[in-house]
């Protein structure tokens, strides 16, 4: 079987992460802790953003820039997570 190329693997990963986000968000209706599901949804959003930056936008070939963008995005998602969780503390 032919192995999918890097771009196709990135696309598959994005589809899988998107599906997992929907599943994680839906778990609230099954009694799962909102803080856990919210954290999962934001973690998956971060993963998707990293894939787009690395593979679609080509930062995989620019490791210094990729590290910088990943750091900034991670901090941003942590701020969003903090704002999301604050009312539930």
């Amino acid at each position: 079987m032919m192995k999918p190329d890097t771009l196709t693997r990135a696309w598959i990963a994005l589809i899988v992460f998107s599906a997992l986000s929907m599943v994680a968000a839906g778990l609230v209706n099954n009694g799962f802790d909102q803080r856990l599901t919210g954290s999962l949804v934001l973690a998956l959003a971060l993963l998707k953003a990293r894939v787009i930056l690395s593979r679609y936008l080509g930062l995989a070939d620019a490791p210094s820039w990729r590290r910088g963008f990943n750091l900034a995005l991670t901090l941003f998602c942590l701020i969003l997570l903090g704002l999301y969780l604050f009312p539930q503390i």
């Binding site: 986000s21 929907m22 994680a24 968000a25 919210g38 949804v41 934001l42 998956l44 959003a45 969003l80």
Partner: peptide, 8 residues
Amino acid sequence: FPVVYLLA
């Protein structure tokens, strides 16, 4: 999308 539509 996750922030506006999914975060309950």
